[in-house]
Structure formats: structure tokens, C-alpha cells
């Protein structure tokens, strides 16, 4: 065990890479989720079709397969990414598709009366979305986004298979050099758990702020184990 803990600089560097890929991937996924999710709420048929194709395609393919494809297949077509870029691209595209469904569902779940009131105040379509629907939909998006963020973080462990030196990759290195298999994997499982709990705290703070903005009481606090992870994979 002490040999494993002695290699903590390596583990911390790995954890930092994991956090970085998680954050970049989450930001990219969020941008995609908003763009394609809002396209899905549009009245135009073309935009809605764009939403469907993106969601069905990238939700259907596994993140790891996408990562391999960006990493091994695309360079043969002359498209070359740095390993981290390939990983972020794959993870972002995959989780952006889940996020787009969350965005679309949340915007559609804002009561129609709010849309009507905005219409009666003569807001343009863009103003209705930006000033009325989206702020209210945000409160609905945050809990499922929180679950997706944890799922995304877990998926980043796959990058170790394409030789990115994340936490899992470092663990395999340490395991190989020390032979301390059980201790190494136990330590990084705990580290992943800590990262996940930290992410959950951040999401809960955001939830609390939006709830206050909407003048609601705090959302019923979910016990850590009771997070409705089900929403994370809802098609």
C-alpha cells in the first residue's frame, strides 16, 4: 500500500488529466446539447430533423468506439487530432446527444402559459426563448445534467485505452512497476469517487441558485445514492 501512496505525484497528475478531460468534454457537450436541443424545439421541420439525426446517431454509438474511431480510423483519412482532442471530441459528441434530449425535454416542459404570456408581451421568438423559456428550463435541466456529468466523468477512464495518461492509465503504470494490484486500483477507485462527489456538490450548488432565482424552495435534497440516475440514459 505504501508503495502505491508513494507514487502519489503520478496519481495526482493522472487525476488532473481526468479532471481536465471531464471539464473540456462537459463544456463541449453542453454547447452541443444547447445547440441541438434548441434545434429540436424549433417549429421548422429541417431543424427538428437535424436534432433527431444528431441525437439518434451519437446516442447510439458507444463513447469508447467513437474514441477509437477518432483515434485510429480518422487519421487514415488525413484527419489527425491530438489524443486529448480526439477523446474530448468523442466524449462531447456522445454526451452532447444525451444532453440535447435533456434540453429539448426541459424547454418543452415549461408550461405553455409562459410562452403565451411572453407572446402577449410581444416578445420575438428569440426573446421568448432567451428571457422566459430557457431560464425556467434551466432549473429542470440541472438534475439530469448532474447525472450526465458523473456518467461523462466515468467514461473518461476509457481514454487510458488509447494511451492518454489519465488516472486509470497511471494506475496501470504503478501496478506494473510495484505489483500492488489491489492497492492501486482501490486507491484510484476512491479518487474517482471523490471526484464524483465533488462534481455532485458543484451541481447541487447550481441547483440551489436556480431554485432561488425561480423563487422556489430548495429542491428536495436527494441522498447521494438516490440520485435519479435513470434520467441519464433516458432516450
Amino acid at each position: 500500500m505504501s508503495e502505491v501512496l508513494d507514487s502519489y505525484p503520478l496519481l495526482l497528475r493522472g487525476a488532473w488529466t481526468t479532471v481536465q478531460i471531464t471539464v473540456y468534454g462537459a463544456v463541449f457537450a453542453l454547447v452541443l446539447a444547447l445547440a441541438f436541443g434548441l434545434a429540436g424545439t424549433a417549429r421548422g421541420r429541417l431543424l427538428r430533423a437535424v436534432n433527431r439525426i444528431y441525437v439518434e446517431f451519437f446516442r447510439g454509438v458507444a463513447a469508447l468506439v467513437l474514441m477509437y474511431w477518432f483515434f485510429y480510423a480518422l487519421p487514415l483519412l488525413g484527419l489527425r487530432f491530438t489524443p486529448i482532442a480526439a477523446a474530448v471530441l468523442a466524449i462531447g459528441l456522445n454526451y452532447g446527444a444525451y444532453g440535447a434530449e435533456v434540453v429539448r425535454g426541459s424547454v418543452e416542459a415549461v408550461p405553455r402559459a409562459q410562452w403565451e404570456a411572453a407572446c402577449a408581451l410581444n416578445f420575438t421568438a428569440a426573446q421568448r426563448m432567451r428571457r422566459v423559456l430557457l431560464p425556467q428550463a434551466t432549473a429542470l435541466m440541472l438534475p439530469p445534467f448532474g447525472n450526465l456529468l458523473i456518467e461523462l466523468m466515468k467514461a473518461t477512464a476509457g481514454v487510458s485505452l488509447v494511451s492518454i495518461a489519465d488516472l486509470t492509465f497511471r494506475a496501470k503504470q504503478i501496478q506494473a512497476s510495484t505489483g500492488q494490484t489491489a492497492a492501486t486500483f482501490a486507491v484510484i477507485l476512491v479518487m474517482y469517487f471523490v471526484i464524483a462527489q465533488a462534481l455532485q456538490v458543484l451541481v447541487r450548488i447550481a441547483e440551489r441558485r436556480t431554485a432561488r432565482m425561480l423563487g422556489r424552495g430548495l429542491p428536495p435534497r436527494r441522498s447521494p445514492a438516490a440520485a435519479p440516475a435513470g434520467e441519464a440514459v433516458l432516450p
Binding site: A113, A117, Q136
Partner: peptide, 11 residues
């Protein structure tokens, strides 16, 4: 227009 259910913006 004024609505039956007020429809104020909660945000």
C-alpha cells in the same frame, strides 16, 4: 392580455 392564471414569469 391578462390571463386567468396570471402567468407571471417566475424567473
Amino acid at each position: 392580455m391578462v390571463f386567468q392564471q396570471f402567468n407571471l414569469f417566475p424567473n
